[in-house]
């Protein structure tokens, strides 16, 4: 027998729960590329991103979510990157942003 239908579902929490998220992959990524931690969220990368100007791709947001253990959809998002490299020219912290894209894709291919 099915559960009762009241005409609405129960909303799922939107919270990033760092007690539940598994940070192992995030730790691996940061260990391989510690410079990613120096991101100050300025958005220069995203401002001139070829893909981000024409699709919903937001490089800064995706790698920040990955660092918080929110991996779902990150691989697919990173596939939107065209690897043109303009973000790397703009980053004031000198982060190898293309390397970040490749690293996240490599680590999270199965998420």
């Amino acid at each position: 027998m099915a559960a009762m239908n009241f005409g609405f579902g129960i909303n799922r929490p939107r919270v990033i729960d760092l007690d539940r998220n598994n940070l192992r992959k995030s730790d691996e990524i940061l260990r391989e590329m510690p410079e990613l931690q120096t991101c100050i969220g300025c958005g220069a990368c995203t401002a001139l991103c070829t893909a981000g100007n024409l699709t919903s791709f937001n490089f800064r947001r995706v790698h920040t979510l990955v660092r918080r253990g929110e991996y779902e959809g990150a691989y697919e998002e990173m596939n939107k990157c065209m690897l043109c490299g303009k973000c790397r020219l703009a980053c004031p912290r000198g982060i190898n942003t293309r390397g970040v894209v490749m690293l996240i894709k490599r680590k999270l291919g199965d998420f």
Binding site: F6, G7, F8, G9, I10, N11, R12, P13
Partner: peptide, 10 residues
Amino acid sequence: VQANRGYSVA
């Protein structure tokens, strides 16, 4: 509003 109750119950 019935459609919003999922937020309330959450």
